[in-house]
Design a protein around this nucleic acid. Structure first.
Lengths: 220, 220
DNA sequence: ACTTAATTGTTAAAAACAAAACAAGTATCA
DNA sequence: TGATACTTGTTTTGTTTTTAACAATTAAGT
């Protein structure tokens, strides 16, 4: 297996490309150019071509890319043929929403276990997902050989819960808590920081307003 | 008002810094060094100092930063003294969770209106937030002078809904849909792509596994 | 067959970002 | 007060990412 180094920035766009290729395929399109795709995914066409080229010559000059071929290629790259079992830690408001969320539209991802401390949740089944006690978490993670966890617990127990996840042999954590986690370097953490996203958006809006004001002021 | 250009990457970290400064302050800490903060927020200490320095000399050599002073400074930068009204478009599973989410812990953000098409939701109040019909959205956005929207509608109506938001004078959209939106350049969109986040995490996990295998293979 | 228009893959340049290194300044303590 | 240890702010260096530009190639039409 060829193993050129794929830049992080490129890797983060692969899933997006794959999704839009699926849409094009469903719409019956057979070919697509980098500039067409660029309009859809809002990524510069040169960046798209560059991204694709890390995986070899996938298109044809003067023609573009074959939608189905490219889709199948990315399907493989993104492990669509292998089912990844995911655990949901903390079945509160957000956890609940994520259980119901369309991850299953991607048939390579399945939330196969939930964990919580609330007695009334333990040993129940939500949306087809059994909920266990956090006390049994390390054990269950091992038994079910789960290696990805979605963390949606309160901030004050985020780190200790992460420690247990590591103990349970987890390889990746999608961290929705407001805390930054300390984990061994072989465990990968992706932060989804909703408060930060919203605050940053607001900052940018105000910042750009200032810039516009400044531009007006500079017309002297 | 001084208006040096703040790099995008720096801007995205400001809210995180602010949050941790608050935690330190609550814990009664009066001073903090860049290396201490670095451990907490998982950002290189040099990057922290560089980030801070865009706003001037905020610390003291040989001492560090005064927690309260720095916190107040960022509070101002992040518009904590000004209430931003936010609309939630689409009160489904995820929307529901976000209504209940702790944005109100930040006293500068308030979700002040929800919009949906489901008759049973319209004219009700969830968690203190009134839900309106999407038909009245443009009107209400104007009346309530809301300029930020959280978009949690199904993919197939994402773009048309975004168009209405633009019509309603929205300045920023936090986009939870799986679609990339076309909006005028003065409107800012931040994408929170949950499927992408999870897929990317899985990709990285497998990718690094490959790298390790490769390293072993290369021991020849 | 030839011409024209289209589009890739890649090279080169630019921009953005991160990290290392260190001089300048400050605190602390004997 | 002087010496030592510490920590910032900034300069320099290195890395990553984006974008522009264009030669090479293909498709399609005449």
């Amino acid at each position: 297996m060829k193993n050129k180094k794929i830049p992080k920035a490129t890797a983060k766009r692969l899933s997006l490309y794959y999704r839009y290729l699926n849409i094009l395929h469903e719409d019956g399109k057979t070919r697509v150019s980098s500039s067409e795709l660029s309009e859809a995914v809002k990524v510069d066409s040169a960046t798209i071509r560059r991204d694709f080229s890390y995986f070899g010559a996938l298109g044809k000059r003067g023609y573009g890319y074959d939608v189905e071929e490219l889709m199948n290629f990315f399907s493989h790259i993104l492990n669509q043929d292998h089912l990844t079992h995911v655990a949901l830690i903390g079945v509160g408001n957000l956890g609940h929403a994520l259980l119901n969320f369309n991850f299953r539209k991607n048939n390579n991802i399945r939330i196969s276990a939930g964990f919580d401390i609330k007695e009334e949740l333990i040993d129940t089944v939500y949306h087809g997902v059994p909920i266990y006690s956090v006390d049994d978490m390390v054990e269950q993670l091992n038994i079910q050989s789960i290696d990805v966890a979605i963390l949606t617990v309160p901030a004050d127990i985020a780190q200790e819960t992460a420690n247990k996840l590591v103990e349970g042999g987890i390889k990746g954590i999608l961290n929705f808590t407001s805390m930054r986690l300390s984990v061994p370097k072989e465990v990968r953490v992706h932060d989804v920081d909703l408060t930060n996203e919203l605050q940053t958006l607001i900052y940018f809006i105000n910042y750009y307003k200032d810039i516009e004001d400044l531009n007006k002021a500079n017309e002297e």
